[in-house]
Simulated scan of single mutants.
Amino acid sequence: MSKIELIATATFGLEAVVAREVRNLGYDEVIVEDGRVTFTADESAICRANLWLRSADRVLLKMGAFEATTFEELFQKTKALPWHEWLPVNANFPVNGKSVKSKLYSVPDCQAIVKKAVVEKMKEKYRQDWFDEDGPRYTIEVGLLKDVATLTMDTSGPGLHKRGYRKLSSEAPLKETLAAGMINLARWFDDRVFMDPLCGSGTIPVEAALIGLNIAPGHNRSFAAELWPSVPEKLWHEARIEAADVVKKDCKLRIIGTDIDEKVLSLARYHAKAAGVAEHIHFQRIPLSEVRTKSKYGYIVCNPPYGERLGDVKEVEMLYKEMGRIFGSLDTWSSYILTSYPRFEQVFGRKSDKKRKLYNGRIECHYYQYFGPRPPRRTE
């Protein structure tokens, strides 16, 4: 198979996590930049990356990158790319665009020029003047950054956070990709207890179960490139067989999700069932103040309310103080908390061992990490 370049886009702060996921798939030629991880692979990686990347937003096929400071330069260099190797005669190829700090700042003009250049390339290849565009979708993006144009095609379709299990959502759902990233940053060991004591509609516990069972997050959905003739159906079939073969069917996980709201817990149970992991998660309606456990060396990963509305601040501060008391009593546990509240450490009552800037949608947050002690080594 010929080599291609793929780009796994990522939420700011999760690039290193996505790069680790890419390397775990066996792809070593990796370049990490803000918001993206570029890697070289063969065509089968389109299938495997879409199925397996837990924390990436989507997988793009990189068609080319070049400097462009004039519309003529953009047109000619776009036309020179091998579009005919990927686009069939009936391809539906809309063009999206973005421009940052570039001389070519008019995004609509750039989109129109790229569209025209691709059409001209198609005319040369297929020797016809009109294309119906009633076939599979190939969403092209022209991204201009500091006068460098990068041309890509989206292989994913809907974003990778759409796993297929969350048909319903609570008021402020956490994206599945960010939840998976939080768990991966926590370096949870699947033989330890995992708890989300503010679980809401269950995204974090469900993602933990998928990780613990080694279930490919994309196993239950389809992708744009599955309809591309240039990516053989055999490759998708092989990738899905591979994913099914490595599921840890005999693994017994101890995952707990609690919340005070029975309505969102019913959503959590629905999502866990839809994801096929319901038997591995124990959901319970209890207030945070009553959270107790005799288990040692567990992990807490949670996304509590942030107090974004002014009237919620005092209520959120009371919650964070309660979290500090409850989490502090679990002296062998590790705790990982995502919030945008700037005074979290003061209210929680303890400075974090480490914190990392992440974005929940457009909200700038910090991920506060409190490391518990290592468990004693097991004796034979």
Rank of each mutant, 00 (worst) to 15 (best):
K351I: 09
I241Q: 15
T258W: 01
T38R: 15
L198C: 08
G164A: 13
D196M: 05
I204K: 10
L198W: 00
D196E: 02
S170Q: 14
E238S: 06
R187C: 13
S352G: 08
P305H: 03
P108Q: 07
L6G: 08
H271Q: 03
G276T: 03
Y368E: 07
L235P: 09
A16Y: 02
L60M: 14
A239P: 06
N303F: 01
F194A: 12
G328Y: 04
A239S: 06
P376Q: 09
K355A: 10
G135P: 00
H271A: 03
S201N: 08
I204L: 12
V17Q: 13
P229Q: 06
L14S: 14
D245C: 08
K62H: 04
E73R: 15
K175W: 02
T40Q: 04
K296V: 01
I300C: 11
E308G: 02
D261P: 11
D42I: 00
R23K: 14
V291M: 03
D261R: 09
V193T: 15
Y367E: 12
E238M: 05
F344A: 08
A117T: 06
G349Q: 06
C365K: 04
V37R: 11
L288N: 00
E21S: 15
L210K: 11
D190L: 00
R374L: 15
V301Q: 04
F71W: 04
H366M: 11
R350M: 08
I286F: 00
M122T: 00
W86A: 06
K162R: 14
Y359N: 05
S169D: 10
F39A: 05
L267F: 07
V37N: 09
E5D: 02
N214L: 01
G324W: 01
K125E: 11
E67W: 00
Y165E: 06
V18H: 12
S102C: 03
D196C: 06
E15T: 10
C251V: 07
T150N: 11
V100Y: 10
R343I: 03
P82G: 05
S352Q: 01
E317M: 12
S170H: 10
P205K: 02
K249S: 10
E133G: 02
W333A: 00
K355E: 15
P197E: 06
K121I: 00
E72L: 13
